[in-house]
């Protein structure tokens, strides 16, 4: 419990964050690469060129949902609430286009790049957070 924020889950957030950090550290020190999900996904799908073997990209892409499934089976987990299909598709297009254009997402820029103190990643992370905050604010104004 976090005083003032009854809905927050700081402990789960921190534990999950440490696991994500370990995952990214394993990719860096084990394979010598950035654990950036958008880039690995594009590589696996054959959309992006790159030096990462497509077999390795697929290993990550398959491992990720399996890890999610392991937690799902081991804990009492409530189904999440999602936006409707039209919004999911519009958002998916923007996320796909934007992460390729901006060379990364929350994992590559937000975790790997920020921790490396990369100027590009710090600017990208500040930008997508500000854009996300503005979007949620505007949607709440128009009642979407």
């Amino acid at each position: 419990m976090l005083p003032g924020f009854p809905d927050a889950a700081p402990l789960q957030g921190l534990i999950g964050g440490l696991l994500i950090g370990l995952a990214a550290a394993l990719m860096l020190l084990g394979a010598g690469r950035i654990a950036g999900v958008s880039g690995i996904l594009a590589r696996g799908a054959g959309i992006a060129e790159g030096s990462m073997a497509r077999t390795s990209a697929w290993g990550f892409i398959v491992g990720l949902p399996l890890g999610a499934l392991a937690i799902r089976l081991a804990t009492d987990w409530e189904p999440a609430v999602f936006a409707g299909w039209p919004l999911l598709i519009a958002a998916g297009l923007l996320v796909g286009f934007g992460t390729r254009m901006g060379s990364g997402c929350t994992s590559g820029h937000g975790v790997c790049g920020v921790s490396r103190l990369s100027q590009r990643s710090i600017v990208a992370t500040a930008t997508f957070m500000a854009a996300g905050i503005a979007t949620v604010f505007i949607m709440s104004l128009i009642g979407a």
Partner: peptide
């Protein structure tokens, strides 16, 4: 490109609350 791409990504992220990692999970 970096900034415009990150801004587009942020708009999509805000709309659905999903970024690539959680989407794949």
């Amino acid at each position: 490109r970096l900034i415009a791409g990150a801004a587009l990504f942020g708009i999509g992220w805000g709309i659905a609350g999903l970024c690539p990692g959680p989407a794949v999970a």
